Amino acid sequence: MTKNIYFNRWFSTAYHYMNMIRDNPDGENFVCYGSHPDPGHLSLQACDYAEKEPVLQGTEYVDYAVDFCKRNRIDVFIPRLMMLEIAKEASRFDEIGTKVMVCRDIPLLERMIEKDLFYESLQGTDVVPIPEYYVAETASQFKDAYEALIEGGHKVCFKPTNSEGGMGFRVIDNDRNALKDLYGWVGSSISFEQAYGALSSVERFPKLMVMELLEEDEISIDCLADGNGELIVAIPRRKSTGRIYELEDDPELAAIAARVAARCRIPYAYNIQVKLNKGVPKLLEINPRMSGGLYITCLSGVNMPYLAVKTILGQPFDKPVPLLGIKASYLELPVLMKES
Rank of each mutant, 00 (worst) to 15 (best):
V102K: 12
F30G: 08
L84D: 00
G97W: 04
V31D: 06
V128S: 10
E85K: 02
S43Y: 08
R71S: 00
D105P: 00
L56G: 03
E60R: 13
I96M: 03
N72Y: 06
D126G: 02
Y64D: 12
I130S: 01
L56W: 14
V102F: 05
Q123E: 14
R104A: 05
L84N: 01
Y33S: 00
K52G: 13
F93L: 03
N72S: 05
I113T: 10
M83N: 07
Q123N: 04
I74L: 06
M18N: 07
E53G: 01
R22W: 11
P54F: 03
K115G: 07
D63L: 07
V76P: 02
E85G: 05
D38T: 03
D48N: 10
D116R: 06
K99I: 05
Y33G: 00
L117N: 12
C103M: 06
L44W: 15
E110R: 13
S91T: 14
K115F: 13
D38Q: 03
P131Q: 14
Y33F: 13
G34A: 10
A65H: 00
C32F: 07
N19F: 07
E85N: 02
R80C: 13
C69M: 02
I21F: 01
N72T: 03
G124Y: 02
P54G: 03
K70V: 02
N24I: 00
L56C: 07
V76G: 01
N29K: 15
K99E: 05
K115Q: 10
R104P: 03
L44H: 14
V127I: 05
Y49V: 12
G34H: 04
Y134T: 03
D126C: 00
S35W: 09
G27E: 10
I21Q: 00
T125L: 13
N29W: 12
F77E: 02
M101T: 08
D26Q: 10
Y134K: 04
C103E: 05
A46Y: 12
A136I: 14
C32V: 07
Y33I: 01
N24G: 03
Y133H: 07
N29L: 06
T98R: 06
E89K: 13
I96K: 06
N72C: 08
A90S: 11
G58T: 02
C69N: 01
H41I: 08
E60A: 12
E120T: 07
Q123G: 05
S91M: 06
F118G: 14
K52M: 09
D63C: 11
R73K: 15
A46S: 14
T125C: 15
E89R: 06
V62K: 10
I106W: 00
R92Q: 09
